[in-house]
Simulated scan of single mutants.
Amino acid sequence: MTTVLFAISEWGYWGEELVGPLEACDAAGYQVEFVTPTGARPTPLAVSMDPSYADPPQGKSVTSAEMAAKTRDLHAGDRMDKPHDLSGWVPERPYPSSPTYLRDAEEYYRRVERVIADDLPAYDALVIVGGSGAMVDLANNQRLHELILGFVRHDRPVAAVCYGVAALAFARDPLRKLSIIRGKRVTGHPIDYDYHDGTGFEGPHALDGSTTGFGDGYVNFGPPFYPLEFILRDAVGPDGEFIGNVGHAESVIVDYPFVTARSTESSIGCGRALVDVLDHGKRRYGW
């Protein structure tokens, strides 16, 4: 059976950016597993379950009543109660300042190689879910980077939505330090969609595991930490291309092994493209 691994932030994911590809995988009969950075149950962003919320840069609601209900139902169920713990699965990269750095690095690569060789063959694809939380614990998560590099080594597709695409920009061989998407065509959250204010993060992140002292579960960080479009333009290099398709209803790019989707409105298309890659051998789409 085809098995797909979904990587999800613990700081707030956008509902449709999980539901879109997840429903496509379910409809195709795939088995789905989830992984979060520390094994905690992920939390959807409240605004992604609110059809009355108007997205400021687009000046309209980007969440349908149907999609809001699907996100609420998924969150209320037990399907994501026990995600894999990425921190307990993939080792932490050692610091160069360690007095035993060379031996630590050798052991690190031995352990990573065991994950890639022994664990990853069980999975046919990786999906990185978007939402503002992905900026916090997915984009620069070196453990997730190792999974991405491992899927690429196995020639298996990696799909990413919106801010989840940032993890592809930062995933790179630590020796060569070139992005894994260098020379590729990708899409992702464009500068035109960036907030001036209201970039929020959610989840039970207080020391006691509650939301107390964490803005009742929500914190507003104003504009996003970084303009993802600029990072992606730099990451793909002179032989690649960032394709925002701003003004078009959807932006989904397949440049195998990567499937990238611009934002919420392209989440269903991301799932459709991933199924086409897995079941029909699609290698190029959208450019």
Rank of each mutant, 00 (worst) to 15 (best):
Met1Glu: 15
Ile8Thr: 12
Tyr13Pro: 06
Trp14Cys: 09
Trp14Val: 09
Trp14Tyr: 15
Leu18Gly: 12
Glu23Ile: 09
Glu23Asn: 14
Ala24Asp: 14
Cys25Asp: 14
Cys25Trp: 13
Val32Arg: 14
Val32Ala: 12
Val35His: 08
Thr36His: 12
Ala40Ile: 02
Ala40Met: 05
Pro42Gly: 08
Pro42Arg: 09
Met49His: 02
Pro51Ser: 02
Pro56Met: 03
Pro56Lys: 03
Pro57Ser: 10
Ser64Asp: 04
Lys70Arg: 14
Thr71Gln: 07
Asp73Phe: 02
Arg79Asn: 05
Asp81Gly: 00
His84Met: 14
Pro94Tyr: 06
Pro96Val: 03
Thr100Asn: 13
Tyr101Asn: 04
Leu102Asp: 10
Ala105Thr: 08
Ala105Val: 12
Glu106Gln: 07
Glu107Phe: 04
Asp119Phe: 09
Pro121Ala: 04
Tyr123Glu: 15
Tyr123Gly: 14
Asp124Ile: 11
Val129Leu: 13
Gly130Tyr: 07
Asp155Val: 10
Arg156Tyr: 09
Cys162Gln: 03
Gly164Tyr: 09
Ala166Trp: 08
Leu175Trp: 11
Ile181Thr: 04
Thr187Trp: 00
Gly188Trp: 03
His189Ala: 07
Pro190Asp: 01
Asp192Met: 01
Asp197Gly: 07
Asp197Ile: 04
Glu202Thr: 14
Gly203Glu: 06
Pro204Tyr: 07
Phe214Cys: 10
Gly215Pro: 02
Gly217Tyr: 04
Val219Met: 10
Asn220Thr: 02
Pro223Lys: 00
Phe225Ile: 08
Ile231Pro: 00
Gly240Val: 00
Phe242Leu: 01
Glu250Ala: 03
Val252Ala: 05
Val252Leu: 08
Glu265Trp: 01
Ile268Thr: 14
Gly271Arg: 13
